[in-house]
């Protein structure tokens, strides 16, 4: 379990990083490394070059911008959780991201760019209607996630920051069911609701882990017709049941 050989570069600016990425088509971005390095250790990935963002200036800021919170790609999950600006939905989800120690180095941008179908932060970003800012463009989160470990990023494009709408006045809930604390969740549900006179006026409901990417659904009914993944630990039937329950719990909690 040792990584294969690769070249390594540690740029200090975004421009330099982008230029390096353009050099080799097998170049990969290294942020916190909490997902990338295990894949290297198992030799599941063989990048020609690792571009370490560790010294790139300006990627570690969290700031309020218009009605959103802008989170630099290299902000760690721990720093995000401890920030006064952390969106309430993300604050609920962050304790489920990896483990205490991996959150010290795991980054928000890395988690988003890795696009694991079971990732908590990806789901939250989609449910909040957030977006991903790259060196070239701004991509709505719903369009950013294309499949398990697959994003809309093009060669030479890297995540610079993510934008998390505050959705002032909305209510939120996040639910996850995992076999052990910190495991990949078998099913994840996040919901954002706006109530008017105690009645739901707007809602955004999202699922993850049971589908190949974080997915918005119209309502609880939609869970019944989704095509779900089964795995070693859970059959599709079980996952549907679980998702149904988590949706009910999340909606009830957000509306309460």
């Amino acid at each position: 379990m040792k990584p294969p050989r690769f070249e390594y570069a540690r740029p200090e600016s975004l421009e330099e990083a982008v230029a390096l990425l353009a050099e080799g088509e097998d170049a990969k971005v290294l942020a916190g490394g909490q997902s990338l390095v295990p894949a290297l250790n198992m030799r599941l990935l063989r990048p020609s070059l690792l571009v370490d963002l560790g010294r790139v200036r300006g990627l570690d800021r969290i700031e309020a911008r218009n009605s959103s919170v802008a989170v630099g790609a290299r902000v760690t999950q721990r720093a995000f959780a401890e920030s006064p600006l952390v969106p309430p939905l993300a604050a609920e989800a962050l304790p489920h991201v990896g483990h205490y120690v991996t959150r010290n180095r795991g980054t928000v941008g890395g988690s988003i760019a890795h696009a694991d179908a079971a990732a908590e932060l990806s789901l939250c970003l989609v449910v909040l209607g957030g977006s991903v800012v790259t060196n070239r463009r701004t991509i709505p989160a719903e369009e950013f996630f294309v499949g398990h470990f697959t994003t809309a990023l093009e060669p030479g494009e890297l995540v610079v920051e993510t934008l998390w709408p505050r959705l002032d006045g909305w209510r939120f809930a996040f639910e996850e069911f995992a076999q052990r604390r910190g495991d990949y969740g078998l099913s994840l549900v996040a919901v954002a609701l706006r109530l008017e006179d105690g009645v739901v006026a707007e809602s955004r409901l999202g699922l993850a882990s049971v589908t190949d990417r974080p997915t918005l659904v119209a309502d609880a009914e939609a869970v019944e017709s989704l095509e779900l993944w089964g795995n070693l630990h859970a059959s599709p039937d079980y996952l549907r049941n679980l998702t149904r329950i988590l949706v009910a719990r999340a909606v009830a909690r957000a509306a309460a």
């Binding site: 990584p3 390594y8 540690r10 290294l30 490394g33 909490q34 390095v37 295990p38 250790n41 690792l50 370490d52 560790g54 205490y100 120690v101 991996t102 010290n104 180095r105």
Partner: peptide
């Protein structure tokens, strides 16, 4: 606290 197995020495 950091996983040293998930960290490259150069980092």
């Amino acid at each position: 606290a950091t996983r040293s197995c998930l960290t490259l020495a150069v980092q």
